[in-house]
Structures are given as C-alpha cells and as structure tokens.
C-alpha cells in the first residue's frame, strides 16, 4: 500500500510552500526528507498525517485519501514531543481500551520498562503539563510507546532523532528502531546525517522535492 503523493501543492495564504510534489513510498520502505528550517518539511508531514486537507493534488496513505481515514493509518513522533497532561498509561492508550499486555509490550519496545518500574506510581505516574515532569528523552520514548501501541502501518518522524545525545539518545534510537521495523516510514530532518537508515533521501528546496 505505502504512500502516494501526486502533484501536491500547498500554500499559506498567498505563500506557496509546496509546489507539485510527487512522491511514492513502497510499503515497508524507510525514506528521508531533508531541508532547511521553514522549507515546508513539517507541512508535508502534516499533509501525510492527515492533519491538513490537501488544496491541490493527491495524498494517499495506505489506501486512504480522506484526512480522517489517513489518520487511522499513521503514527507520528516529533522532536518536541507533546504529551497529554495525564498518566504515562493514558498517554500510551490515549483513552482507548487497550490490554495491559499491549501497553507493557509498547513500553518494553520503547525502552521504558526499567524507568517506569522505578517510579512510585509506576505506569500511573502523572507526566505533568506538556510532559513537564519527565525529561525530554523520557517524553520522547513515551511518544514512541504511544506510536507502537497504535500499531499503525505508516510511521512519520519529524526531527525525531535531531537532538539525541548520550545514553538517552541510544535508548530513543533503540525505541525508534522497534517502532519503525517492518513499517513504512517517512522521516524528515534538517540534518542529512540523521537519515542514515533511509533507503532513499530527498531534499525539499523552494517547495520542490529533489532526489539525492
């Protein structure tokens, strides 16, 4: 199924940010898009996530074209992860019914188990407003666990590996590896070197996509 984008154009008012973008990603393929800040990478990713309605052209994700249908097939992880002001568990389930087994498997894959078991309230620990009571790395791994538990066929990564360092960085990378394995992945970044795992890399410049 994968992803199909054809002749996609998108503008904020009179400012055209994406011009005639065409992109085909096979199921299970991992591709990267690189570009400077403000070039339209996040806009493209939001269109692929079904967060924005297309203005012109086609976006088809895992066979779905309507935004509300597209959203059912994707999970997204961002650099600046936003968590809900709720418990770790609620951040993973997003309020949906989910078995304990699925939740703990997601936690394990996201390298969270050890940390969660060390907490007094365990998986019911409140993460604070916008994840203010957990570190950036922990928040990102909770977001990854959420994406794993979602079990979506398409994964979108927005600068997900741009600010990783040390032990936290390797834990997040391992978590991301669990998340993306066997899935269709589109990863965007402003740094070329963070897209080393990609089978194809594109550069987004002046609203157009160029193959590298």
């Amino acid at each position: 199924m994968g992803i199909r984008v054809e002749n996609l154009r998108y503008a904020y008012g009179s400012k055209l940010v994406l011009r005639d973008i065409s992109l085909f990603v096979n199921a299970g393929e991992y591709i990267g898009i690189v570009g400077v800040s403000g070039c339209g990478k996040s806009t493209l990713l939001k269109l692929l996530a079904g967060l924005y309605q297309t203005q012109s052209g086609v976006v088809e994700v895992h066979g779905a074209c309507r935004p509300e249908e597209i959203r059912k097939n994707v999970a997204m992880v961002m650099q600046n992860t936003v968590l809900f002001p709720a418990s770790i568990k609620e951040n993973i389930t997003c309020g949906h019914p989910m078995s304990e087994e699925v939740i703990w498997q997601a936690c394990k894959a996201a390298q969270l188990t050890e940390w969660i078991t060390s907490l007094a309230d365990g998986i019911d620990t409140f993460v604070g407003e916008q994840g203010g009571k957990v570190s950036g790395g922990q928040a990102q791994r909770i977001a990854i666990a959420r994406a794993i538990a979602r079990n979506a066929p398409v994964i979108l990564l927005d600068e997900a590996t741009s600010a990783l360092d040390g032990d936290t960085g390797s834990a997040v990378l391992a978590a991301l590896d669990s998340l993306t394995r066997g899935r269709t992945v589109v990863s965007v970044s402003h740094r070329h070197e963070t897209l080393a795992n990609c089978s194809r890399i594109y550069k987004l410049e002046d609203g157009r996509l160029h193959s590298l």
């Binding site: 939001k46 967060l51 997204m76 936003v82 809900f84 609620e90 949906h96 407003e129």
Partner: peptide, 26 residues
C-alpha cells in the same frame, strides 16, 4: 484551564491518535 489548554496545545497529537474525546472527557 490546564485541561482546556491541552485541547489546543495537544491538538495535533489528539487528531492523530483520535484522543479528542479523551481530552474532552478530562
């Protein structure tokens, strides 16, 4: 007010993970 703020700040995540009703319930 914090819960109301979350509906705005976490709008993208809520849309992707179909969590609007969860946030509204809170």
């Amino acid at each position: 007010a914090s819960d109301m703020n979350a509906i705005i700040v976490c709008a993208a995540e809520a849309l992707i993970y179909d969590a609007q009703s969860f946030l509204l319930r809170r």
